[in-house]
Design a binder for these strands. Structure first.
Lengths: 275, 275
DNA sequence: CAGACGCTGTAATTTATGATACGTATTTTT
DNA sequence: AAAAATACGTATCATAAATTACAGCGTCTG
């Protein structure tokens, strides 16, 4: 079972007539992007007619052109997810023999921050650092600890930070305290929890600014969120990894601390004195 | 002159209405492949209608959808051309590479696992997976969330997992339940907490096997611990980073799950049925 | 509270894309 | 060298995709 389209091609290049071979060569030379464009583009680039392209694709075993494009996209998706697994590039310089799960985790963190812009972080931090707003935090079954971690730090650098804890009914009642100036920071990865969605919906209805940290498949809460950060969670293990979300949380904490530098320094000093 | 589409998006995300922002978030989360599919696919994935996608694209400054796709393809082409420049061809080229704090975090994780031997992990997992023992978990001010996270997972794959929560007096009383067969998993980084040290000492006196996950300066609890894992926590920020500890926890969870594969599968199945 | 504005989805419209039929050219075979 | 078979391109068709028009809805504003 040939896995990649490129493999398929090199396997059957021999049996192909001249025109189709030109198509094959063009595709390999611009792999795989030319295959994602239209048949017309592809045919022009290859210097053949569009039916030739279609025959070529059909010879590869695909029933129609979109099916062929879907295969290319899937490959590309897999490649972009884990750049290190590319067959062409195998840099492994000194990172040597850490376990695959750890490597995947590191890659997830990197990849996550590739998709998060500075501006996004700054915008969220601006919300978090806004002195007059109250901040509520909550997470799902496995991510709630990350929410707690974040809360533990934020509560030191600024007032009015509350982690929504305990029974669902308990924090549902806290909705009454939330208003337009306030911020709800939610961590939610699949399988997404209905209870969190309901909370987000109601909070949104009250005008609360919702910040969502989720996985790359986006929790349905994204619908109500002002800001969404999508972290990578896939690792070769029975569980998803929340490490990337954890690092996102640390990044937010770090930036918020810098933002609130003077105030937080004062708070910390006062706290020390209270011991 | 904004070069990348991702950059464009993060620049204008703020001015966008809710629906278009959802589109933006979905695109960023699956960058850039979802943008190469059809408008219908994109809209469905984002949970909005196709006109919203078109308006979103138009707001980014493109005159039509194909033009937008062409821009994405050009980016992708540049990226695929020189795989090694993946890190340099970034959505936000203004910061060069990932922020120093993130880089330090990644380095910490890697460094941590360089010093942790497979045997160490295996020994600890053997303890955790021992069916007859009860497992208690606890952490310090900032690391307790990591303990909770670990507990949340372990409690799924095996019985008798307890996170020591609430007041110090509460968990001190749980000491009475701890015996020689049991395991106490402690997370503690500086500034080390006296309360945890006292707990560890007493548990040790009762013959409990203590596993300590700490920072590289080793919590005093190490004196009582059967196994110690020292993670790196230093980052250029106001706070220490617990990310390495978090990944250590995930590694333990992952290995324990594999170890208890058959039993945990059965438990998970039963749990599903109980819904 | 009424009116205006802006956002969003449904449905109709237009565009362009993939697929097919057929005739011509090219190669292969005897 | 002639006939057969295969390959290829032109022109046409069907269909799927992008686009536009419009109406409903919610949200701010005076």
């Amino acid at each position: 079972m040939a896995s990649s389209v490129a493999e398929l091609i090199s396997g059957r290049m021999g049996e192909m007539p001249a025109g189709e071979r030109r198509a094959a060569q063009t595709l390999i030379a611009n792999y795989p992007l030319i295959g994602l464009k239209t048949v017309a583009d592809f045919s022009q680039q290859a210097g053949v007619s569009s039916p030739t392209i279609l025959r070529f694709v059909s010879r590869l075993g695909f029933h129609n052109y979109p099916e062929f494009q879907a295969a290319l996209q899937d490959e590309l998706a897999a490649q972009l997810q884990s750049p290190l697994s590319r067959t062409s590039v195998r840099p492994t310089p000194d990172q040597g023999k850490t376990s695959p799960v750890i490597e995947a985790t590191l890659q997830n963190i990197r990849e996550t921050f590739r998709h998060v812009s500075d501006k996004q972080i700054r915008d969220i931090v601006a919300l978090i650092a806004r002195p007059r707003s109250t901040i509520f935090l909550i997470g799902g079954r496995f991510t709630d600890p990350v929410a707690r971690y974040t809360a533990a730090h934020l509560t030191i650098i600024r007032p009015n930070v509350f982690h929504l804890t305990g029974q669902e009914s308990t924090w549902r009642d806290r909705l009454i305290d939330m208003g337009k100036r306030d911020v709800l920071l939610i961590f939610d990865i699949r399988r997404y929890q209905d209870s969190l969605l309901r909370l987000a919906e109601k909070a949104h209805a009250r005008g609360v600014e919702i910040v969502l940290v989720t996985d790359q498949w986006l929790s349905p809460i994204a619908r109500f969120a002002r800001h969404v950060i999508a972290g990578r969670t896939a690792v070769p293990s029975a569980w998803d990894s929340s490490a990337a979300l954890f690092v996102v949380a640390e990044a937010l904490i770090g930036e918020a601390t810098r933002e609130l530098e003077t105030e937080s320094a004062r708070r910390i000093r006062e706290m020390e004195e209270l011991r």
